[in-house]
Simulated assay, not measured.
Amino acid sequence: MSAYSALTAAGYRAQVRDKTTVFFTFAFPLVFLVVFGLVFRGKAVEESGFSYLSYTASGVLSWGVANAAVFGIGFTLMQWRADDILRMIRMSPAPLSAVIGSRYVLALGVGLAQAVLFVGVAMLPGFGLVPASRWPLLIPVLILGITSFLLLGVTIGSIADTPESVAGIANFIMLPMAFLSGSFFPLDSMPDWLQKISLVLPLRYLNDAVSGSLTGRGDLADIGIGCVGLVVFAAIFGVLAARTFRWTKKS
């Protein structure tokens, strides 16, 4: 068995054993979908005519997938470094690409499973958010989004040395980004200066691309712009991850 396969299999077994984390990873976006569906049912955003739910559902899915990617690899790298697992891997023939690649495959699996479950619920009569002709576009969008945010998580997991610091740094980045990127409130109802700030946040591009795919808001060009933005941020976070990665606490 290759180092990549062994790390992927070990990571999968560790992930499925943690029943609590698995439950909340999948339940969290659905809870928000149901709550927002009940609160904002029938209400529209005046500037666009689209329902509040069409904004918030896309934003909640984007935020849920991004959070899972960031926290998943951030905590893993920190814990592996604290337990000297990374040091032992470094002394083996396994390359760094096997370490990150194994976590990447697991993050893709979690993110796509989240999306399938979320889309299934969103297509129910009470929500009816997903046009049949658009939802397959979610697949490439989510792959790009997971790639970008996983690389951000690598940077956080390389900087932080304790679970508290991983949670603190990740929440400090992800929570304000969620509000400023329109995950919970429509950007159309925000001041112009906040809308401009959102243009330098990766979650804004994931929200826009997911919204175009999930609810049909916007056209294919909007989805394409979102994907291009995610590629740019993936490149930026990739450079940061390469420069900050540490096998041990000292190097």
Rank of each mutant, 00 (worst) to 15 (best):
G145D: 02
G145N: 01
I146Y: 06
S148Q: 08
L150Y: 07
L152G: 03
L152M: 14
L152D: 02
T155S: 14
S158Y: 03
A160C: 13
P163K: 06
A167Q: 11
A167W: 09
I169M: 14
I169A: 05
N171Y: 08
F172Y: 10
F172G: 15
P176E: 04
M177C: 11
M177T: 12
A178F: 01
A178P: 00
L180Q: 05
L180Y: 03
F184Q: 04
F185L: 07
P186M: 01
D188P: 15
S189G: 13
S189A: 13
P191I: 13
P191Y: 04
P191G: 04
W193P: 08
L194D: 15
Q195E: 12
K196G: 13
K196D: 13
I197K: 14
S198L: 09
R204C: 10
Y205A: 03
Y205P: 08
V210T: 11
S213G: 07
S213D: 11
S213H: 08
L214Y: 05
T215S: 01
T215N: 00
T215M: 00
T215Y: 00
G218E: 03
G218W: 03
D219I: 15
I223M: 06
I225P: 10
I225L: 15
G226P: 03
G229I: 00
L230Q: 06
V232Y: 02
